[in-house]
Write a protein that binds this DNA or RNA. Structure first.
Lengths: 146, 146
DNA sequence: ATAACTAATTGTAAAATGCAACCAGTTTTT
DNA sequence: AAAAACTGGTTGCATTTTACAATTAGTTAT
């Protein structure tokens, strides 16, 4: 029996509904935390991402980084200056998750007991509107895309 | 030993960051599917919600509905005309999750293999802008809020 | 050479999810 | 009035995911 080609377009999605397809990529407790830290805390290394307030476990972080890379949300490359260091970057597909994060932040500001200090970015982004959002995307693109 | 009051403001949140606080409510594979069906498929009963393409299990649906009620996203009431029927409604807090769902839909339309039929709502909402979004919220408020 | 740091991996326990069958009431059908 | 079908669930069990702590091989700094 020969190994069989996996048909890419027939991946087992629960459905092809847009909401479900997004949830299958970042609909869990950790993926958006990682993306948030890369976007707003400028974290690019494993150890930095491990340090969040939410205390992600290292095996879960490893798993999510691999998944996000498979899904084309991030890329990884080893820093040639420091062979042991791996630098993680957002792709355009990853940067474009920003509006989702902003919408979630706005909702929490309205309904959840947000720590004002932690909510600074969300506050600014809720007020800054479309222009600020685009400016942030530009900044991220400059730092993360080659 | 007397039962002790649970201090509401000290609930064990992983953090008080807005992104995390939103994820703690609907950052799982099912909650937004349920909310989507209530918003766009006009589902209001247990059996209807059980029928989604994604095939949620009945015990998980029971669990999520109870959680969403605890979190103030939905309410439940028994239809006095049909004693066995329970009708689920969105609260304003629940209706205000719409922008998150729209942002996720737009992202999927751009990057994921969305079935055009399933993506109709997302397509319209991406094009319709703020006005359409507000109109939909008004419609939901009329049907779900008393 | 030693110590400290890197991105992980491993082992084990706990929690969440999936699946199928079942259930007690409530209507509907016959 | 009985039987059938429908309601929102519950139960038991297998699988999967997550949490937590300790450990690791390779790399860099002292």
């Amino acid at each position: 029996m020969q190994p069989v080609f996996k048909i890419k377009t027939m991946e087992n999605h629960k459905s092809l509904c847009p909401i479900n397809l997004a949830l299958e990529v970042f609909g869990d407790k950790w993926s958006l935390i990682i993306i948030r830290d890369m976007m707003f805390e400028k974290k690019r290394h494993f150890r930095e991402l491990l340090q969040s307030d939410e205390k992600i476990a290292s095996n879960i972080l490893t798993d999510r980084l691999a998944m996000l890379e498979r899904e084309g949300i991030i890329t990884k490359e080893s820093d040639p200056e420091h062979k042991q260091k791996i630098i993680y970057s957002l792709t355009l597909k990853g940067i474009d998750i920003l509006p989702v994060i902003i919408a979630m932040g706005s909702w929490s500001l309205k309904y959840q007991p947000v720590d004002p200090e932690k909510g600074k970015h969300a506050q600014q982004l809720a007020e800054g509107g479309f222009e600020l959002q685009e400016a942030i995307k530009m900044g991220l693109a400059e730092k993360h895309l080659k």
